[in-house]
Amino acid sequence: MTLKSTTYPEGTVRALLSTNLVTEATRQVLTQRLTTPRQQPKFFSNDEFALLETICDRLIPQTDRPEHVPIANGIDHRLAENKSNGWRYDIMPADGDAFKLGLQGIEESALALFQRPFQQLSGAQQDEVLRAVQGKNAPGKTWDQLPADRFFEELLAEAVENYYSHPLAQEEIGYVGMADVPTWQRIGLDQLEDREPRPL
């Protein structure tokens, strides 16, 4: 069995945002997210931030459309405001320290494995470094202080939350749950409302 195509037409969410199918509160928050450009970091140094952006591009590739979702900005913004998601693994240092250490560790692992900084590696080499971090077998002293697998989990989860909160990413996966003003009445299997996009 194969799933039907799951590519959706571009622009579906953007088109919905200007209609009365979404509430004013929803329109405001999604429009703001859609129109917020990449910004200079407030928490990370410029070098750290550039490294984080490169890593996010490997974790969540964005090569199939011209617009780019600024994933790293969301992480930087949260850390600059010292906001928490309500918990952290007790074995991890404070979130900000964990990110700085983790970035240092990734750079250290890149040098150990390929003798070059992470950003100068090929995509395949970068992926190899990241796989080693995720698998808890990356070389580098930093990983004695920071549990590599937990750091990778936190980094990936936060990158994913930032990316898939963005209207462009929601268009990719065909999510239009924000268009809820008329209520949903066709909710069973294979039942779609007119405003729900069909796969291409």
Partner: peptide, 16 residues
């Protein structure tokens, strides 16, 4: 709003 990220204001986010 119908936006998960904005609605994290409903969670007890003081760190545990």
């Amino acid at each position: 709003s119908t936006d998960e990220r904005a609605q994290d204001k409903l969670f007890w986010n003081d760190e545990r």
